[in-house]
């Protein structure tokens, strides 16, 4: 009995890892791909290793984007993006879920910081790190030019970075 319980715990851990991996890899297959603009810097994490920090244009929202009540800092927010020319831009945002318009996508994020006087809001989408092999992060930093990030968004809301390229 106890032994069964132990192997159940082990199985849970295996399924957790596989589940996380599969669900993210499914984003590429079934999700919509959007392109975003960013600028890189290059720090370290003791557990995940070296990465390039990506700062997106879509992270900064203005007052006019918000619909409904002003969300609190640290709360979950939903941001609607639509394609304009090559890149996707913020259309509207809200503290509650809403249906996207035709051709638009919803990104879930967290309101990191808001400055009500200036009417600016910063949203964290949890896509600010692009992990690279150790010793290779500096190349990204040295390039100085903006980066283009392709992000996959699954119908169930999960999202991930698919690729990062420099702008031609």
């Amino acid at each position: 009995m106890k032994r069964l319980a132990f192997y159940f715990i082990v199985l849970l851990q295996i399924l957790f890892l596989i589940g996380v991996a599969l669900s993210y890899s499914a984003v590429e297959r079934w999700g919509e791909t959007i392109r975003l603009k960013t600028a890189p810097v290059d720090p370290h994490d003791p557990f995940y290793g070296e990465y390039v920090t990506l700062n997106y244009d879509i992270e900064q929202l203005s007052e006019s984007h918000w619909e409904g009540a002003d969300p609190e800092q640290g709360s979950t927010v939903y941001v609607e993006l639509q394609q304009e020319d090559e890149f996707w831009q913020v259309k509207r945002a809200s503290g509650n879920t809403f249906e996207p318009r035709e051709g638009a996508v919803i990104l879930k994020g967290m309101l990191r910081h808001s400055d009500r006087n200036r009417g600016t809001y910063w949203v964290d989408y949890g896509m600010n790190r692009f992990y690279v092999e150790e010793g290779t992060g500096e190349q990204f930093e040295e390039r100085q030019s903006p980066l283009i990030v392709e992000v996959g968004i699954a119908p169930w809301g999960q999202k991930r970075i698919l690729s990062v390229e420099t702008q031609e």
Partner: peptide, 10 residues
Amino acid sequence: TGQMYHVSSF
């Protein structure tokens, strides 16, 4: 798994 898919958690 976080690194494979460039997920940064909150």
